[in-house]
Amino acid sequence: MSEQKHTEGSVQTTGHAWDGDLQEFNNPLPRWWVWAFYATVIFAIVYWIIYPSWPMGGSYLKGVMNTITYENDKGEEVTTHWNTRALLAYDMKNSDAAVRQSEYLEKVTNASYSQIAQDPEMMAFTRSYAKGLFGDNCAACHQQGGVGVIGKYPNLVDDSWLYGGTYVNIEQSIQNGRRGNMPNFESLSDKQKDDLSEYVLSLSGHEVNRNKAQSGAKVFQANCVACHGADAEGNTAIGAANLTDRIWTVADVPGASNLEAKKVAIKQVINNGISRHMPAWSGRLSGDEIKLLTVYVHSLGGGQ
């Protein structure tokens, strides 16, 4: 077949012929392509020299003329061959963005909560920084903007706080997490539960049956005051809810259309109790981050 090679004018073929006359050209590669190929080879060699590359016995080529100087946790400068971990250490502390951010962070760290709240510049920084933190860490439960999920995750924008709404309270909640627990009162009789739910609704100004509410008050005195208090205003030390306002965190009373449905919602809580858990964030977020989040949550609406 090789004798056919140069027969087709100036174009070379591979010399194969299929079905009689089907032939394959053997054109040279385009010049630009060949040069581009050689360029990538040269690039690779330069890259090997500058960046960590080939394994060599028990070690590897670490790259020459290419070092990174970063600050370690003790604040000492360390210089090492180029690698992504050193680059990250540099980025976290010494990059432009980190340096510019640290000016603000330092200011916020050294300021008291009330100083931050009064300073528009620090507040603006806090809002933009903590909004991201809130979205990454808190919004999965408390929802974007902090509106919560009734019955599950407390609303952070209203004026009612299970564990208190001062800066210190909020900081503690974030730092150590919270474990909310109300035991179930299944053992009460159906009548007692019914009366109790009437009484609880009367506390927040709902129109209820007075007689039932009166006997419900006795059930309340016997079972509920230890946590919710004699005045039913709750106890922020243990996260017991205030039952006298119109804000509900567990029973979906506002979502129920009539009195009967509201009672069912309350009786459900009496029957089942509630157990909720907010994880501690002190191991995951830094002290600065928790401080920023505290200011942010406080500023969402209901901070005290």
Binding site: N72, D73, K74, V78, T80, N83, R85, A86
Partner: peptide
């Protein structure tokens, strides 16, 4: 220390 992890690279 972060430096510890950098030293593995």
């Amino acid at each position: 220390d972060e430096e510890y992890f950098v030293n593995f690279r």
